[in-house]
Amino acid sequence: MTAPANTKNIRFKIKRQDGPGKASYWQTFDVPYKPNLNVISCLQYIAEHPVTVAGEKSTPVVWDCNCLEEVCGACTMVINGKVRQSCSALLDELLKETPGGMVTLEPMTKFPVVRDLWVDRSRMFNALKTIQAWVPIDGTHDLGEGPKESAENQDVRYSLSRCMTCGCCLEACPQFLLGNQFIGAQAISQARYFNLHGTGKVLADQRLDAMMGPGGITDCGNAQNCVKVCPKEIPLTESIAAIGRQATVHAVKRFFNGPPRK
């Protein structure tokens, strides 16, 4: 990697929108190149110097972020056409993708825009309610240890538990759309996560019921984009298959046993 000259600017083309329902528009900003920049530090520079390439005074670009080390899931956006975390999107890598030296930033398209690059992802958190994404413990009193667990099972659960609700999997999914009901890989994988826990699986049947209605597991189209864009390399397609199997077995059982007694 050759270090470009100090004077070099990186041009950012940013899709902006002043609020929900407002028309979107593009603005371009220049950010002086330094080694080891990430998209966040460039947005911070623009916040301090909100002047477009054309010399117009603008406002700091609004975006959602928090930890800046790819563990909180907040800063997802579409960068050069591909959804990812803006904290771990390094300029030296991005510039290789775009030989022209231009980086485009857009908000995710599968969630309603709040402003600029900030979108409303409450649908993802609501999905966690739908699938009862929790272990139904009796309470916080001292009741001793949790269930013993094999190292192998922990390894699988840990890989699933790293989901930070960032929304990359849903943004890249051709089946998950702004207006539809599909619950998406994130929640499907979380359902698997809780069904793998000794106590969590008490609610497995209810999770599967929730997972078998419209927008549930069967709405997956197996495009497998989710697993490729997941920044945490969560085995999402394996989760989809696992919940598919559980749903199949569950449906057969339901067929012979009838609906659950209330």
Binding site: G81, K82, A172, P174, Q175, L177, N180, G221, N222, A223, Q224, N225, K228, V229
Partner: peptide, 20 residues
């Protein structure tokens, strides 16, 4: 009810999906 995006995400599996 789908929105194929193989141009944007040109992974082989995604082309497979669109082609399906």
């Amino acid at each position: 009810g789908s929105n194929p995006n193989s141009i944007q995400y040109p992974y082989m599996d995604n082309w497979r999906y669109t082609l399906q």
